[in-house]
Design a protein around this nucleic acid. Structure first.
Lengths: 336, 336
DNA sequence: TTGTAAGCGTTATCAT
DNA sequence: ATGATAACGCTTACAA
């Protein structure tokens, strides 16, 4: 357990602790010779500064916290990849917290974060979160927060999202173009920014094309697979939609499974399109038309903004939304 | 940024710092009344002990590091879920490091970890890692290490895996049972424990069934999608296998894509089976037969062992392999 | 150019 | 039962 610390280096080199510390930080008033000696030994012994001790002095931990609802999800996985890529570039460490769509866990994490464990927070809020004071509290403590994907609209900071409204509009329009007359929307929690926007895009597209939105075709799904299956099954049996626009991948997958078990053919009986980052979308039976989100870029951008705030003394996180567009990729599931 | 610390609590309560500290830790020699007052105020002000300061004294950070090759991968995603579930139970924080299958990054992470940022390490090694001294160094510094999935066999610690050899054997036997005569194996790096074992299972199954393993049918794939596509394309065109056993999901997906582009039918022309945790395996065209790994449980078990070591003074990580079985799930891709 | 010493927030030892 | 104090490893005025 004996670790190499500054004290040890100082002893071995017959220098004071202060001199070693300054030499390591390449300070002006240390002779080049001393610096070289210190650096050489530090390298030889693989000296790593103790981050906890530096935190105590400098009040930064070179760590960011990422709070997400779940991780077994291609979207968040890609976003983490993006986040990690900039964190690694800048020498930051990434702590992951999974809220499992549970407000209380999210709350507990934010409480823990008031103690200096991380210098900033990236968050995509849980679907059961309706109150944002825990996040305001964090911000008030001086912890910079950047939202991505599931954002809090009226929060004074950067929010990175995709164009959810337009994409919802586009997906629905695409179904209309393909001849659908009864289009259902499997929506994600309407208390979520993305849920709301995607649904609004859906409704507007219907209206713009002369359809009257039908409440019984807009299903707000849950976080429970069984419950969702029941809802979707009822929808398919009772409302008999000829098009489904799924707000998230999971609902599209459930739809595929239920269509199979009910003997419905995609796309003949029902056409399906979904927000999705599934790698295998094109290999499904039938291949799935998707709104593919720039998840990696969203993660990168959010992390880049947060780290800019942490690194640049004078930079303040602006109160703005950064929108990175999704792409509509049509495949067989929506073919005429 | 003004944070609540012990000092502040002490001032407000007109107590000494020492008393407050002890009261918070529910020490024997503090009166119940004082404890109550301290606790009440701590709760009211949402006092959170500074983890960096405690580290300096106690030498533990309540943090574990997870080093994995990639995250856009259903297996690792599920494993993280398992790891996080026990970490959350025990109040530990999880830092994620992605080696991107690059030994040098893995090395850099382990160097960083010598400084106390984490109390222990869970690792699944990169496919380019052949030397394990960086990990031995970590262990020698007193950092407990637990391997999962891609383990180092001769390393004195716990290794949690699935039964890779038996599963490779099983997958291959299944293809034989389904009538395949020329079975190819798309192997992952043979320097990886899992790559080696899965391939050995494949070879043994062939031999036990009267086939002579053919080197040109055992393709060691890479980490580069294009290169893999070339390799698999050549395999399909030149060797014309009638069965493919893919060691990882990615190779199965590539096989599907290439069969499609080459006009080969699965399972009529080629049957395919793969190690995979794809949620959509049953929805693929055709549905994919898989060896499904208990990824969540593997993550849970690995984390549980590590945390046991961290929490129990007298517990030493045994030098043993914990094997949790995979399941063969047959679907259309291997139908006769 | 180098060294001394204080202090970051905690915990633990030893007094009181 | 409570308090004073040193120490953890590091940074940084300030002194030499």
């Amino acid at each position: 357990m004996e670790s190499v610390n500054i004290k040890k280096l100082a002893q071995l080199l017959n220098l004071s602790i202060a001199t070693v510390s300054k030499a390591l930080r390449d300070s002006y008033d240390i002779s080049q010779e001393t610096k070289d000696r210190v650096m050489a030994l530090a390298k030889e012994l693989n000296y790593q500064p103790n981050p906890h001790a530096s935190f105590l002095r400098k009040q930064n931990s070179k760590t960011i916290a990422v709070i997400i609802p779940e991780i077994a999800n291609n979207y968040f996985t890609l976003a983490i990849n993006g986040i990690e890529s900039v964190a690694q570039e800048k020498g930051y460490h990434v702590i992951i917290y999974l809220s499992h769509e549970d407000y209380n866990r999210e709350l507990a994490f934010t409480r823990l974060l008031t103690s200096g464990r991380a210098d900033g927070v990236l968050i995509s809020v849980s679907s059961t979160t309706t109150d944002y004071t825990h996040l305001h509290d964090l911000q008030n403590k001086g912890l910079p927060i950047v939202f991505f994907d599931r954002v809090c609209e009226n929060f004074n900071t950067v929010k990175v999202t995709t164009d959810d409204y337009q994409s919802g509009y586009l997906a629905t329009s695409h179904l209309i173009d393909q001849g659908c007359k009864r289009i259902a929307h499997l929506a994600i929690s309407q208390s979520l920014s993305i849920g709301n926007k995607r649904a609004k895009g859906y409704i507007q597209a219907l209206q713009d094309n002369g359809f009257t939105p039908d409440e019984s075709l807009l299903i707000e799904c849950t976080n429970n697979e069984e419950q969702d299956a029941t809802l979707i099954k009822e929808l398919l049996q009772q409302q008999k939609p000829d098009g489904i626009f799924a707000a998230v991948e999971r609902y599209a997958i459930a739809s595929y499974e239920l269509c199979e078990s009910l003997g419905l053919n995609i796309p003949e009986d029902v056409k399906v399109i979904s927000f999705s980052n599934l790698q295998t979308a094109s290999l499904l039976n039938p291949s799935l038309s998707t709104i593919t989100q720039p998840a990696f870029e969203i993660g990168r951008e959010a992390a880049a903004m947060l780290l800019k705030k942490l690194e640049k003394k004078n930079f303040q996180l602006p109160d703005e939304s950064i929108v990175i567009q999704s792409k509509l990729i049509t495949r067989k599931s929506t073919m005429r």
